[in-house]
Design a protein around this nucleic acid. Structure first.
Lengths: 223, 223
DNA sequence: AAAGGTCAAGATGACCGCA
DNA sequence: TGCGGTCATCTTGACCTTT
């Protein structure tokens, strides 16, 4: 089952056009298409583009960004972070991630990291697969999240959850792609977008506090 | 003698217009005019605007910027400094001085710091007085250095060096102010401008190496 | 007085145990 | 498997010694 999904995913990676998506996602796609390895194991950190160590606080991140986010949002360490003097335009990558805490934290929040959504135990592969497909679009806008989701074919969803009848041809306002999604996909997506929008708004409104959304989407069934 | 110079300096600080000079200099002037304290003892760091600890490597700087410059340019530590990702536009102040090494080093060079010009022992008060008068204009351009020098009145120079006859009315191309300077002042200024221009050019051409000019101006007579 | 050396304090991130 | 704790490593800058 998972093998099928992963194979299907690889095929779709090659089809995905990256225009209009943010740079991180492009980098991820390029690397991923290039070596054609397991997309669930060969992730990059959504914050700094390093090789990711795993799925932490709601996003694939490296050990450094995991520790940073855990430390910063964990205790009352947020006060130690001062305003960015460069208008929050600092580039966060492997070399510069330690330069500006404000921008690093901002990017962590932008890619969907959240302490409230963290928990022990494993996420379902389906959940993480969704994150892979969405890439780092989470941090961009509602539109780009929708755009990023086009990599998921109905076949995968049907195979994963067989409750949706085959041959549906549902038209949805936010679906402008040839690929059709089952109705519940948009419900979940809508939930995700709403919760992410809240976290973004909160992050923008008051960077002295941590985002408290429950992660991108609560699909945490055990697989 | 020194008392006279310091008193004269305070009077001139109030006269000085700061338009066309760079922000550091403005901040210094404002602070200095405000509390009216001894301008030789109440300096600010030309790099980060902290209170300065003394005159180090060719500029008034704090302990931190002194150590940073000494460490960075001392051994072959320049390789550890990576390119600025923000187009070398980082603001360097007390809070952000540790954020971007490239911009911090750049600013050190811009305000005239240099290892080659460093030495043990004391500088003459005259030399430091000149630095005070020039403020941080050193880092801006030849024109602003000239503009910054208008704070030195002929009276000070005459009292300091009595070889120049009173009542000279020398016309000089770079002197657009009502205050007149003796001819040798412009010779020294020209030397300084040339050597500083070299250091700036070198700093801009190759930031992998340290500036090797002999400091702003070699007026190091003992007072 | 201004170099250069020293070292405590803080930040970082690789590693590990636990749930 | 992911969270939180640990600690070696690095950077910083106040203080001290040397010239």
């Amino acid at each position: 089952m998972m093998e099928f999904l992963r194979e299907e995913l690889k095929v779709h990676h090659r089809r995905i056009q990256t225009e209009g998506e943010e740079e991180n996602n492009k980098a991820y796609m390029e690397n991923n298409v290039k070596d054609e390895e397991d997309p669930l194991r060969n992730q990059i950190c959504r914050v700094c583009d390093e090789p990711a160590a795993g799925y932490h606080f709601g996003a694939f991140t490296c050990e450094g960004c995991k520790s940073f986010f855990g430390r910063t949002c964990g205790k009352s360490n947020l006060n130690s972070i001062s305003e960015c003097k460069n208008n929050y335009s600092c580039v966060i990558d492997k070399k510069n991630r330690t330069s500006c805490k404000a921008c690093r934290l901002r990017k962590c929040l932008r890619v969907g990291m959240s302490k409230a959504g963290s928990r022990y135990g494993r996420r379902s592969n389906w959940f993480k697969m969704h994150c892979v497909m969405s890439g780092s679009n989470k941090g961009n806008s509602a539109a780009s999240v929708v755009a990023g989701s086009k990599g998921i074919s109905r076949v995968e969803i049907l195979k994963k959850r067989s409750e949706t009848p085959r041959g549906d041809n549902i038209s949805h306002s936010s679906a402008t792609f040839s690929v059709q999604f089952p109705w519940w996909y948009f419900v979940l997506q809508r939930q995700f977008l709403a919760s992410y929008e809240n976290s973004l708004k909160k992050a923008l409104r008051d960077e002295d506090e941590c985002g408290t959304n429950d992660g991108p989407m609560d699909l945490s069934q055990r697989s």
